[in-house]
């Protein structure tokens, strides 16, 4: 392998290497400015903040791979999370944590299926459909499920929060721990990555994103692939909603919706192409970590929280700029498949 090949491999097909490098550099710089920053406590805290956006981001990435932009994920998340909390508060779930997560995930999958149905029936663009369902899901939730705070959640949920695999302290003496949640989330990431790379359906997702028509001609079950993707994205969002509730300790129906920017920024920064067909689990994970790290650093350095949005906005530009730069001559979308403009078919 030549030097340039090696550098390319390191950089990663979706610029994952660059994101990883940025994470390291940022940590080092802030560590220099703020001794005590570099340490396990920081890692644990950043991780803790990343679980929820990561689950959302994975779902957004899956839909983006197919060539569509899903903006309903946060609505799905809160619907599932809050809905499950309502059920739990009424004692219907027996206080079992695993059941709560299961129910939340299933609700999310169901909402994802609704998205899939509308997209296929109306033959509408995914962006438009999810813009609509976003409003519908939240509206239905507030109207029929409930609109009040739920704070008397089962004990299992409250203790789950502080169920640490490993504990340590920050420089200022606060407790920081590696939550048990990291295990199922890591497994989820691994499963999704393996699925994308080593199953026919997984390759099919990329294929549909590359050229839906060609995917049909090749024999991919395009309709089924789309449904699976939407349901998975919904399930991930549902799980994220439950993670949100468990990390905060109460269920607020006004939560989540409104914080979607960081998720989309993370996905884009992680190398997923907004035109579809490109993206990786690793890239998405790194993208989320980088953005959460930035936010954490801003807090540590005492910067006003209003700068958060500026930082995220800048990162979205950076992420997209990196993508466009890679594409030849700015005609990224036109697949230069070789055919010069030809006669209109007859």
């Amino acid at each position: 392998m030549t030097a340039s090949d090696f550098l390319s491999r390191l950089r990663g097909r979706h610029n994952e290497g660059i994101v990883a490098l940025t994470i390291v550099l940022l940590a080092l710089i802030v560590g220099a400015l703020n001794p005590g920053f570099l340490g396990l406590a920081t890692v644990f805290n950043v991780l803790r903040n990343s679980y929820e956006p990561l689950l959302f981001a994975l779902g957004v990435m899956l839909v983006l791979l197919m060539g569509g932009i899903d903006v309903s994920f946060d609505a799905v998340g809160i619907f599932a999370g809050y809905g499950t909390s309502v059920l739990a508060a009424h004692g219907l779930l027996g206080g079992h944590l695993w059941l709560m997560f299961l129910v939340s995930t299933l609700i999310g999958a169901g909402l994802g299926a609704i998205n899939a149905l509308i997209v296929s029936l109306g033959r509408l663009s995914i962006l438009i459909v999810t813009l609509g369902t976003r409003g519908i899901f939240v509206g239905v939730m507030l109207t029929f499920v409930g609109s009040s705070f739920i704070s008397d959640l089962p004990m299992s949920l409250q203790t789950f929060n502080i169920d640490y695999l490993y504990q340590t302290h920050t420089a200022t003496g606060q407790l920081a721990g590696l939550q048990i949640l990291v295990v199922p989330i890591a497994i989820t990431c691994l499963l999704i990555d393996l699925g994308l790379r080593f199953t026919v359906i997984g390759r099919g997702i990329y294929a549909v994103g590359g050229s839906e028509e060609a995917a049909r001609r090749a024999g991919f079950p395009v309709g089924m692939i789309k449904t699976i993707v939407f349901c998975c994205a919904g399930a991930l969002a549902g799980a994220a909603g439950m993670v949100h509730v468990s990390l905060i300790g109460y269920a607020n129906p006004q939560d989540i919706v409104g914080n979607e920017l960081i998720v989309i920024a993370a996905v884009v920064l992680g190398g997923a192409s907004i035109f579809g067909g490109r993206g990786s689990v690793l890239g998405t994970v790194l993208g989320v970590l980088l953005l959460e790290l930035i936010q954490y650093c801003l807090i540590i350095l005492g910067v006003q929280s209003s700068w958060d949005n500026v930082a995220i906005g800048v990162m979205i530009f950076v992420g997209i700029a990196l993508q466009v730069k890679r594409a030849p001559g700015g005609r990224a979308r036109v697949f230069a498949g070789g055919a010069k403009p030809s006669e209109s078919p007859s």
């Binding site: 390759r203 990329y206 294929a207 994103g209 590359g210 050229s211 028509e213 060609a214 995917a215 001609r217 192409s273 067909g277 490109r278 697949f335 498949g337 070789g338 055919a339 030809s342």
Partner: peptide
């Protein structure tokens, strides 16, 4: 066909 109908984002082997 003239547009070849390939998947630009998949490898040649795929």
């Amino acid at each position: 066909y003239q547009d070849l109908s390939l998947f630009p984002n998949l490898s040649i082997a795929e």
